[in-house]
Structure formats: structure tokens, C-alpha cells
Write a protein that binds this DNA or RNA. Structure first.
Lengths: 225, 225
DNA sequence: GTCTATATAGGGATAGAC
DNA sequence: GTCTATCCCTATATAGAC
């Protein structure tokens, strides 16, 4: 859009900078602890200017939530053979984890956030439901490929547990203040989740999973009390 | 203490009533959304009176946290035989769940709460660590009793997952707004957690667990998407 | 688009009478 | 112990000039 004038271009950039900086601060200190003034300060703009671009703080949160929802909106492939299925699951969980980490402020006050805003709540539940279905489908495909042994009820319960651990792992991890860890909550989270699946895998698939996740986790320390 | 005069007795009762009512309101609407004024109103006392009994709002939170910590401070027995071990685990998890439910407001904003107060954070981590150790010990006892097949690393990972699911299940459950469920998040939570253990149990122990948890869950609907 | 100045409101907490 | 009245601070949001 080279035809836009200078002001319009600046507007565009300021709008985006506000969003990016808000995300950074929200993640760092928690949404409730970040004032509009702090956001403006961090950007070197005035509070009034911020309110020119966004009606209110909630609108900023909603925009960020939309970005997050798009990041989360991905379907797992369902490969046909066992080996690829495991890597599909691994990749799927990994991408999900990254999205959660990048917008982790949403997860710190989920209840309050969703209680304040019915639209967000509905949308969040839609995302969770899709994740749940995606995991169930992957598991069913694995059963079909003889890579997994599990009956339908076991799959449902397993998928629910995967969802819970994936949703809250980073929260849980950040509570425990160990110096070394902060960096790679992601890798250990994926490891935790995969270990939920492991016991249901057939011998060969199980070994394959072990190889994938051990390779992944090796970079970081695997110790945790 | 029948020798106390009327005022002192009233004081005692008001102090406790403030605590009980705060807990109720915090659980219902979230700590951040409950003002000292609302607490006073609900009790039919003045705001000033409330501050006679408690220096500030944080002191109320800290007292409630102490109560919670005491509820959580229980050790699992380690029975010698397989059947009793499973019931021990079940009972242990059940009591833990109840404590979490009764003080669930603590879990809604855990990060913020613990970030604001280093003492609480340290104490919370101590509780979590004890829970973790308790679970590990129970699992080791089960392995010894031939009721469980798991190596030490598997036990550690399993215990971590149990802790995560137990900690966050009620949060997770309350996000999804289904009419029927609200009542028995507890039963379904225990069911979810036990299903983490199930795949590691030997055939007979596994059937025993199935019986225990199915019997427990039967009262409520087991359906959940 | 951006600024400065300010209105507004709410909630935590205190002073002092009873 | 309890009340009323009020202070003070912070944060959201707006008004109006540039």
C-alpha cells in the first residue's frame, strides 16, 4: 500500500506496536498488572494516543486472543503408517505448545478472563473442543495402524488428560522456581505429554516415541523434582 | 474460655465469620473481584470493622492459605498389600481433591497470588513437593508389591502428571460450561487421575482400580466431550 | 496521529466518635 | 468491637489543542 500517506502508515505501525508490546508485557507481568500507562510508556507514546488506536484495554486483549486463536487453528494430518503418525502427534503437540507459550498470559487468569467475556469463553471452548477431537482422531488412526492399543473410552480419557497437561504445563512449570528450567519448559512439557501416550503404544511404536522425545529432550536437563 | 467477656467473644466470632465469608466469596467470584466492602456488606458489618480484625486484605488471604496448607498436610499410608495400596492412593487423591475444591480460589490466580507473596510461593512449593514425594512413594510400594510395572523414570514422570492433573482439573472443568457437570467435577477429576495410573498396573490391580473408580463415578454421568 | 491535561470511579485503608 | 466519614491512590478513559 504505497499510496497511503505518512500518517496512515504511522497509524498502522503504532497499532501493531501497541499489540506487540502489550503481549510482551502481559506475558511478563500478567495482564491485570499491566496498565495502559505502562504500555504507552514502554512505547514512548502518550496514554491518549493509545486510546486513539484502541477503544479500551479489553479491545487489546481481544485482538491478541484472535491472533492466538489463529495460531491454534491447525489440524493434525492423519498419516497412514505408524511411524509417521507418531511424528504427526509430536509435531501437533509441539506447535500447540509454542502457541500457548507465546500467548501464555491468557492462561494465567483464564477463569477471570473468560468470565469477563462470554465471546472469548465460547471461542476458547471451541478451540479446546477441536484440539480434543484432533487428538482423538490421531489416536484412532494409531489404533487402526496397530501402533496403539486402546478402547474408545480409554482414548477419550487419554485425550482429556493430554488436553489438561498441555493446557496447564507451562503454568505449573513456572510456579516452581528453579533457575535452570525457565528456558525449556517447552521441551519438558512435550515430554510429559508424550509420556501420557507412551503406555498405550505397541512395542515398536513405543520405542520410536522414546527415540523422538529423548532426542528432543537431550538438549535440556531432564531432571525435575 | 468461658472467662472471656462479651466483646472478646464477639471478636472471635467476627474474625472467623470474616474468614468464612471471604472464602465463600473468593471461591464464587475470584479473589480479585471481591472487595473488602463486599465482604463487610455480606456480613452486615462496616468496612472499618473489618479492618479492625485484619490489617489488610492480604492478611485474610494468608490466613485462608494457612488453613488450606493444613488440609493438604497429610501423608499417604503405605499399606503392604496391593489391594490396600490402590485404595490408599484413591483416598489420598480424593482428600487432596476435596481440599483443592474447598479453597479453589487459590488456584484461579495461582501465578499472580504467588508472585505477590514470596512466603506463599515457598510454602506452596513445599506442599507440591510433598505431594509429589507421597505419590512417588506409593508407586514404589506398588511396584514392590508387584501391583505396578514401572521403572523409576516412569514413576517420576507419572507422579508429575498426576500432580498437574490434580492441581488443574477443577480449573479445566469449570471452563467448559456444561449444565450437568458443575456438581461433580470432583468425581470425574479423580477418575481422570486414576486413569493416569491404570496403564501401569498389573492385570489384577488394574481390574481392582477399575471397580473402585467405576463404582465411584457411577453416580454422575461419565460423559464429557 | 499525537500530545497534555483532566475527569471519573473504585477500592484499599485510616481517623476518631461511640 | 463497631460505626461513620473520609482520605488517598491508582487506573481507565475522555477532551481538546496541536
Amino acid at each position: 500500500m504505497k499510496t497511503l500517506d505518512g500518517n496512515a502508515v504511522r497509524t498502522q505501525r503504532t497499532r501493531e506496536r501497541v499489540l506487540a508490546e502489550s503481549l510482551r508485557l502481559f506475558n511478563e507481568r500478567g495482564e491485570a498488572n499491566v496498565t495502559t500507562g505502562m504500555i504507552a510508556d514502554a512505547l514512548g507514546i502518550s496514554p491518549g494516543n493509545l486510546y486513539y488506536h484502541y477503544r479500551n484495554k479489553d479491545e487489546i486483549v481481544e485482538r491478541l486472543f484472535r491472533q492466538f486463536a489463529q495460531r491454534m487453528d491447525l489440524e493434525p494430518d492423519a498419516a497412514a503408517d505408524a511411524a509417521n503418525l507418531i511424528e504427526d502427534l509430536w509435531l501437533y503437540l509441539h506447535l500447540t505448545f509454542e502457541a500457548i507459550r507465546d500467548y501464555r498470559f491468557l492462561y494465567r487468569n483464564l477463569d477471570d478472563l473468560l468470565a469477563r467475556n462470554r465471546k472469548l469463553k465460547a471461542q476458547f471452548n471451541r478451540i479446546a473442543e477441536r484440539k480434543y477431537q484432533g487428538i482423538v482422531r490421531l489416536c484412532e488412526a494409531m489404533v487402526q495402524a496397530k501402533a496403539m492399543h486402546a478402547n474408545p473410552e480409554e482414548i477419550r480419557v487419554l485425550a482429556r488428560n493430554i488436553l489438561v497437561v498441555a493446557t496447564y504445563w507451562l503454568n505449573f512449570d513456572s510456579l516452581r522456581e528453579r533457575r535452570a528450567s525457565a528456558a525449556d519448559g517447552l521441551g519438558r512439557g512435550a515430554y510429559q505429554v508424550m509420556s501420557l501416550v507412551a503406555p498405550y503404544l505397541a512395542g515398536e511404536a513405543r520405542r520410536h516415541l522414546g527415540a523422538v522425545s529423548r532426542g528432543y529432550i537431550r538438549q535440556s536437563q531432564a531432571s525435575l523434582g
